[in-house]
Amino acid sequence: MLRITAGKLANALRGTVSGTSRVAAVRCLHGTEESAEEFDKRYEKYFSREGIDGWEIRKGMNDLLGMDLVPSPKIIEAGLRAARRVNDIALAIRWLEGCKDKCGDHQATLYPFLLEKISPTLKELGVPTIEELGYDKPELALKSVYDL
């Protein structure tokens, strides 16, 4: 029993002594951390790919809107153009809504900035903003039963 314990202890100690180099080696396996610009480029490229279909666009958008970030204007534009290419305006509007929702607490400051950046693309494609559609407020909401 003692021998087993001693052996384990020795192993653990060996681990701490030469641990640093091993950790470095393991970290290198994961490659370098992706910078924000590279991330933007990757998704821009993903959405701008020729022959992308609605399935892939939805996948990309779902992934992006599930992350802890606000998509940069370039990604949003690429997404809108992708929706144009697959001929689905509903997708474009929903994408805008999702990006607006991602602004979270900073919607008052961040959303106008995003809108300003992407407005040329919106005009070019003919995609209405959420405010133009009146989707910033519930449209088909039922009247409260207490007010009837």
């Binding site: 305006i89 509007i93 929903r94 999702g98 929702d101 559609l133 407020k137 449209e139 088909l140």
Partner: peptide, 17 residues
């Protein structure tokens, strides 16, 4: 445009939130 949106999606963000 609204009709097309409602064809694809049931509720807008503002509605379901």
């Amino acid at each position: 445009k609204k009709t097309l949106y409602r064809y694809s999606f049931g509720q807008t963000y503002a509605e379901f939130q």
